[in-house]
Design a protein around this nucleic acid. Structure first.
Length: 402
DNA sequence: CGAGATTCATGTGAAGTATACCTTTAGGCTTAA
DNA sequence: AAGCCTAAAGGTATACTTCACATGAATCTCGTA
């Protein structure tokens, strides 16, 4: 009985017409053939990097721009093209791309350099080696022949936030140590204020060239969407007004094209799930909710247990209201919860840091305030919308074992 | 009444500790001449 | 004697703790009008 049902579901699924013909075109990983409204930036990056075809070291490049303004895409695109051309002209060129935001991959100096070494095919253990040693392996690996190495460090602001700018200083000095190879650094940052407060030597060295990616406006986003939707969707499954709506939503918060594409994709998925044959505007609203939920869900799910507990404590304190709470309150709740779950109670000092990390992730909104006679603390709010609350709560409760 | 001192709760930096892991080295055992 | 394996020694990164000092506005204190 039940099994017949199940089979029915699968049967239906296989027979059903999907609104998609190539869903990948809407994914973040998709590398489109042409990138609308980024001609200036593409040629900008290309001009800076072009000298490497003549075996000259290009200037270091620094790129700013909010999320979803095509920074990564443009850089990867230009680099790929460069590699193709280099291959044709027999120019030795290597592009290494590292995303510094990846937890436990490149978020400290050691891990970044270890990752770089791994990218060039060296085996490097996760811990135990002196950082200098890892630098050396990396140097030797790239210095064994004459070549240009382009080092793309995406979301570089995270790295600096976590482990200071020594890393960058060391990296910008690389060229002095190398005999044969030459290294060009490309730093990509979401945070425009990032270079304030870093070592001026690093700043001038890294920012030999700078490029700003302005946010897209609604019309530009719509262009992008219609480009992609032609590839992704089956004929007649999507209409202008849906695209406009996605574009408008995405333009509303800082012109994030990635978000627009997500919206469109999820709207399509929801339509598919309902078995309808065209995506209507309502699905965009549903998609917006779902995306926020899913994103937060993923982030929270992969948090270390201690951070989860800290977040859960905040969750309880907030309890649906919109009053802020303070570090001290949170620490009390946290301590109780630790006893209850058998987790080790960390010090308030450490919790303060964890709160800072959760703030960076956008799960908390924190700001340091002084309450005068009553001391100084962080004023905290849980930074997620009410629609996601219940799901996340369930997740936390199951993962923490309540 | 107002300027300056005081106060509180915790932010924040620096140094120290525990743990897990890596390489090197010295000692011990085996093997082959 | 040479070769190989093992375990201890000495080193590192990371996550966390401990210690100590910094912060900054509400509140208190006290001199003055």
């Amino acid at each position: 009985m039940q099994q017949a049902n199940l089979e029915g579901i699968f049967e239906d699924f296989m027979n059903k017409e999907s609104v998609f013909i190539n869903k990948d075109a809407l994914s973040i990983r998709y590398k489109p053939e042409n990138i609308p409204h980024r001609d200036v930036q593409i040629s900008g990056v290309a001009k800076v990097l072009a000298p490497c075809l003549k075996l000259e070291r290009p200037s270091n490049l620094f790129i700013y721009g909010k999320t979803g303004t095509g920074k990564t895409l443009v850089v990867q695109r230009v680099c790929r093209q460069l590699e193709v051309t280099a291959l044709k002209k027999q120019a030795p060129l290597k592009v290494i791309y590292v995303n510094c935001k990846m937890k436990r991959v490149a978020d400290t100096e050691y891990r970044l350099v270890a990752q770089l070494a791994r990218e060039v095919g060296e085996e490097v253990p996760a811990t135990g080696l002196p950082t200098d040693e890892v630098y050396k392996t990396f140097f030797n690996a790239i210095d064994d022949k004459k070549q240009i190495v382009i080092l793309v460090l995406d979301e570089i602001d995270w790295l600096v936030h976590k482990s200071g700018d020594d890393v960058l200083y060391n990296l910008t000095r690389i060229n002095q140590e190398l005999e044969n190879a030459k290294v060009c650094l490309i730093g990509i940052s979401n945070d425009v204020t990032f270079t304030d407060g870093i070592d001026p030597r690093v700043k001038s060295s890294l920012g030999e060239e700078e490029l700003v990616f302005p946010p897209y406006d609604a019309l530009q986003i719509k262009d992008i969407l219609s480009d992609r939707s032609r590839i992704a969707f089956a004929e007649g499954c999507i209409n202008e007004s849906v695209l406009s709506k996605c574009a408008a939503y995405a333009a509303r918060d800082h012109g994030d094209a990635r978000r627009a594409l997500d919206l469109l994709r999820v709207a399509g998925e929801l339509a598919d799930r309902d078995g309808v044959d065209s995506v209507v505007e309502d699905y965009v609203d549903m998609a917006e909710d779902k995306i926020e939920r899913d994103n937060i869900f993923e982030v929270v799910k992969h948090l270390p247990a201690q951070s989860q507990l800290v977040f859960y404590s905040g969750f309880l304190l907030q309890n649906g209201s919109d009053k802020p709470f303070f570090t001290g309150d949170l620490f009390d709740i946290y301590t109780k919860l630790c006893k209850k779950t058998g987790l080790k109670v960390l010090t308030q000092r450490r919790i303060s840091d964890l709160i800072g990390e959760l703030d960076m992730l956008g799960l908390f909104n924190a700001r340091v305030i002084s309450k005068g006679r009553y001391g100084r603390t962080r004023e905290l709010r849980v930074g997620i919308g009410p629609t996601s609350m219940n799901k996340v709560r369930e997740l936390l409760e199951s993962q923490l074992g309540f």
